[in-house]
Amino acid sequence: MNVAPRTPRREGTQGWVIGRAAGAPVILSPSWLVAAAVLTLLFVPTVRNLAPWLGGVATYLVALTFVVLLFFSVFLHELAHGFVARSRGLEVREFAITLWGGHTAFGGAAATPGSSALIAVVGPLTNLAVAVVCWLAVLAVPAGGLVSIVLYAGAIANGFVAVFNLIPGLPLDGGRVLEAAVWRTSGDRARGTIVAGWGGRVVAIGFVAWVLLRPLLSGRQPDLFTVGWAALIGAFLWSGATQAIRGARAQRALDGLTIAAVARPAVGVPYGVTLGEAESRAVAAGVDQVLLLAPDGRPAGYVDGAAAATVPTPARPSTPVQAVAVPLPVGAVVDGALGGAALVEAVGRVGRFSEAMAVVVDGRVSGIVFARDVVAALGARP
């Protein structure tokens, strides 16, 4: 039986690739079908009020047209983000149309506050321009007709997408603009993200409060459906804002990471010495860790403290140090001059084949790093 090779699963949003733009795939998520069906049912009463002469099937088709226009507005919004980001040197990885509308995934972050703000604001401005065009078209066609109704829906949809996304709180585009403004003023990108993330949390709470309090202030009880979708959108906004805050704090920890914060100072000893001699050299150097050096000077192992502790004191002067050493694979070294993301990348690369690695500065062994210590310093889970 012939077995065809399995196609690797594509990373990112799962769904149907319906095209490409700005060098990236356009993905239609299956969740969009759920959103389209629900929104079509919600738009049906509106269509009946605007066009009572339509039949049952036609009413649903027009409602579906409204939904498609709404998502097309979101798609234009994301395309604007993508093309401007690409012009600013960012890699665009995908455009996705999902249950929540859509998103654009990039292979990095904007290098300057100006680029970040421009990439963010161009999406809502695109929707605003489309809303104006649709509104001018509404004024140019006969009032009350089906074309007029569809154009009116396009103006409202794009206007809503533009205004909603300009609210100053992450994960909305207005939050990115706020982030860029704080970043530009303070010189600290993480601070900008944290401020905009808290803005997003305020927006989430404010949105839910507005949706629920508005009917109460008019003497009505909010229905269960209103409570449900308000809570859902509020939870989405809160989650996005919280993730942004956590990401900024993690990035700040990453940027501040140094080899001194994670390395354990060590002394290098030749392979032929005894455990007692190695310990004497460590005491003289004022360190706790001992690295074994091969004849060519390469770090070839390190003393296992637990194993060394089992050697009786009288036997330590005669016990070969390699008897209590853990071998280090060739290449298990990290440059002591590294820091931040470069250090984490180097540790991650070596950590694929060795949990420990020697720190080398100007060709001289100065310490040892364990991958678990780097993980702990970043405040992350392995």
Score class of each variant (00 low, 15 high):
142 P>L: 04
177 V>E: 01
173 D>T: 02
232 L>N: 05
159 G>N: 09
230 A>E: 09
169 G>S: 03
155 A>K: 00
135 W>L: 14
132 V>P: 00
147 V>M: 10
170 L>V: 01
231 A>V: 14
161 V>S: 05
216 L>Y: 13
229 W>T: 10
163 V>I: 14
176 R>F: 10
139 L>P: 04
209 A>I: 06
129 A>K: 12
242 T>W: 01
215 P>K: 15
145 G>H: 02
236 F>G: 07
156 I>N: 02
194 I>K: 14
179 E>C: 07
209 A>T: 12
232 L>F: 15
207 F>V: 00
134 C>W: 08
145 G>M: 06
139 L>K: 10
226 T>K: 03
144 G>M: 06
209 A>M: 09
224 L>A: 15
238 W>N: 09
196 A>P: 05
161 V>Q: 07
166 L>V: 15
220 R>F: 14
158 N>L: 09
168 P>G: 06
153 A>D: 03
227 V>C: 01
187 G>N: 12
200 G>T: 03
172 L>Q: 10
224 L>Q: 14
222 P>R: 07
226 T>G: 09
158 N>V: 12
165 N>M: 04
214 R>S: 08
205 I>S: 12
150 V>E: 01
152 Y>E: 11
130 V>P: 00
227 V>K: 08
149 I>N: 06
207 F>N: 08
208 V>M: 08
174 G>M: 07
202 V>Y: 13
130 V>E: 05
130 V>H: 02
169 G>D: 07
169 G>M: 02
135 W>K: 03
141 V>Q: 11
233 I>Y: 09
160 F>L: 15
217 L>G: 13
230 A>Q: 02
216 L>R: 12
158 N>W: 07
185 T>I: 14
197 G>H: 04
213 L>F: 13
139 L>N: 05
193 T>Q: 05
185 T>K: 14
184 R>K: 14
239 S>Y: 12
161 V>Y: 06
205 I>K: 06
235 A>W: 15
222 P>K: 12
192 G>I: 05
134 C>V: 00
165 N>I: 01
134 C>A: 14
206 G>N: 01
213 L>I: 12
206 G>R: 06
153 A>V: 13
194 I>W: 06
142 P>Y: 09
136 L>Q: 08
167 I>L: 15
134 C>T: 05
191 R>I: 00
179 E>L: 09
151 L>V: 00
136 L>K: 06
154 G>N: 09
166 L>S: 07
171 P>Q: 04
225 F>G: 04
140 A>F: 11
135 W>Y: 12
213 L>V: 13
166 L>D: 13
194 I>Q: 11
232 L>Y: 07
207 F>E: 11
233 I>T: 04
214 R>H: 09
146 L>G: 02
